[in-house]
Simulated scan of single mutants.
Amino acid sequence: MNTTHTEKKAKPVAPKVKELIERSKSVILATVDAEGNPNSSYAPFVKVDNTFYILVSFMAKHTKNLSEGRKTSIMFIEDESATKQIYARERLTIEAGISQVERDSETWVNVIIKLKEAHGKVVDVISEMGDFILIALHPVKGSYVNGFGSAYFVDSSLEIIEHRNDVNHQSK
């Protein structure tokens, strides 16, 4: 029996994905503008149920891109200083649907409270500024990587559904 092959096919425990998210205070954003030009940025977030919320300003390019409902990808990634191998950092990349939360709605109020708990009193100040909006990012699908040959598809609930491929890296 080839134990190396068996180990590669074993799914990581689902909580590993959730632990990566819990260790993160911000999410990396990949957006595109009306002309298809890419923009990368980040935003502090909170996760409520299965939705990520970010409070962002229209002074940032990504906010306009997100507010116009274009596709986005978000990523959580292991801190460089904590990784054992820079080429194999643990990461979760998610394609996400986008919706804007109506200011002063019940969801707005509840999420602002959670953002303040997570990120401090600055949330009180910026949530009152007119150029800040609350965006909900709804996971659609994605991938989780936690090492060489250890890549998995995840579903909209961020559960691992299958190994991404059974093809090993090829030698030159």
Rank of each mutant, 00 (worst) to 15 (best):
V13A: 15
A151M: 12
D33I: 07
L115D: 01
A10V: 06
G97F: 03
H169R: 07
V111Y: 00
N39T: 13
T93E: 01
H5E: 14
K121W: 10
L134V: 09
L92E: 01
F76W: 09
K141G: 00
G97M: 04
I133R: 09
E90N: 07
S24K: 12
R164L: 14
T72H: 00
I74M: 01
Q170Y: 11
L20Q: 07
K11A: 14
D155E: 05
K61M: 05
V13N: 14
E90Q: 06
P139I: 13
L55H: 04
E78S: 10
E162V: 05
S57H: 08
S26G: 06
V32Y: 00
P38M: 06
K84H: 06
S143Y: 07
F45L: 05
I94S: 00
W108E: 00
K71I: 08
A30V: 10
T93R: 02
V145W: 00
L137Y: 11
K18P: 02
Y53F: 13
T107S: 06
N50C: 04
I74Y: 00
M59N: 05
Y87R: 05
P44D: 03
G97S: 09
P12E: 04
A43R: 03
V101N: 04
H119E: 04
I94V: 15
A30I: 03
M1L: 05
D131A: 02
R91C: 07
A14P: 13
V125L: 15
K71A: 13
